[in-house]
């Protein structure tokens, strides 16, 4: 992948900022998401809450299902492959996907290695719980980062803790003297030049979205307040009582996250939210996959 391709792929993520990326499982849901103002959709066969319920091995979606969604909407279409599954990624690249999510929501295919994302022309987004994880993924070629949160729970607490950890790590690195960067890179287990970048610029070299447990407009606004560049919403929309209305409200809440009066209006009369589960109640913590 040339420098130019890396820039173009990071720049597409810049265009998504301030937006909401929604999980969709059919062309109809994709159209609801687009009409609500989503800046992209994530095409997958089962949303994370259903992946949890079904158990077993969760894999890349059928390309026919993804193509149906690509034909239904004009916004960017993303899709997930398993961590370390280079062949699934190659298949998604071959069908012209706009962004690949190498995602812990699917069952990892490689318990040690991630995909060598720098060898692809198509861009990748990866999950991270802290700065070290984010910089390892960027070192492998990811051009966008999202917090892992805990997908399919409807519980925002893990996304909050990952975003706070990331921002706190960044502030700490930015405060280091130049000769302290080497030890920081060792402790973060991250590429040295990327730690230098964070120290100099006080931010990640790529866009950082929030993901994993966002279920309400207030959840989405909270993640923006914590410094997210935008928000992924997985199960929160299409597991709720009125998906179209909730989707519109979350899009507006992200655009106007600091306007409390507007958030109050947006939170009004939304119908049933998804039934949440706490990470303490579940056996499988997806966030611990692929660190």
């Amino acid at each position: 992948m040339t420098e130019n391709r890396v820039d173009l792929n990071r720049q597409l993520a810049q265009m998504l900022k301030g937006g909401v990326i929604m999980d969709v499982t059919s062309p109809e849901q994709a159209r609801i998401a687009e009409d609500a103002g989503a800046c992209a959709v994530m095409a997958l066969e089962r949303i994370p809450a259903d992946i949890r319920a079904a158990g077993g091995v969760a894999r890349m979606s059928d390309p026919a299902m993804i193509r149906g969604i690509q034909e239904a909407v004009s916004i960017p279409v993303m899709a997930k492959c398993r961590i370390g599954h280079t062949a699934e990624a190659a298949i998604l690249e071959a069908i012209d996907i706009d962004y690949i999510d190498e995602s812990e929501v699917l069952t990892p295919a490689d318990n040690v290695h991630h995909i060598d994302k720098a060898s692809f022309a198509v861009p990748f987004v990866c999950g991270a719980r802290n700065l070290g994880e984010a910089l390892r993924r960027i070192g492998e070629g990811a051009t966008m980062i999202r917090t892992k949160g805990e997908a399919g729970t409807g519980d925002v607490a893990q996304a909050v803790s990952h975003m706070r950890q990331m921002m706190s790590d960044i502030r700490r690195v930015a405060s280091l003297s130049p000769d302290e960067v080497y030890d920081a890179a060792k402790n973060l287990q991250a590429p040295l030049e990327l730690v230098h970048y964070v120290r100099t610029h006080g931010r990640l070299p790529v866009v950082n979205f929030a993901a994993g447990g966002v279920a309400t407009p207030a959840d989405a606004a909270l993640m923006m307040m914590l410094g997210a560049d935008g928000v992924f919403v997985g199960s929160g929309i299409f597991k709720s009582g009125n998906p179209a209305k909730r989707a519109r409200a979350i899009v507006q809440a992200v655009a106007n996250f600091s306007d409390a009066k507007m958030l109050a209006d947006l939170s009004t009369d939304l119908g049933e939210a998804m039934v949440g589960i706490n990470p303490q109640e579940i056996a499988l913590l997806m966030a611990e996959r692929g660190v």
Binding site: L16, A36, R248, V251, A255, N256
Partner: peptide, 30 residues
């Protein structure tokens, strides 16, 4: 981001890159 922002004094407007459907939906909603 809102009508009250829009009413502030200005000499020009910039409309950035992003997703046009997303921006248009929000322009209408607001």
């Amino acid at each position: 981001r809102s009508l009250s922002d829009w009413l502030m004094p200005k000499d020009a407007l910039v409309i950035p890159g992003g997703e046009s459907t997303s921006q248009l939906t929000l322009l209408r909603a607001l």
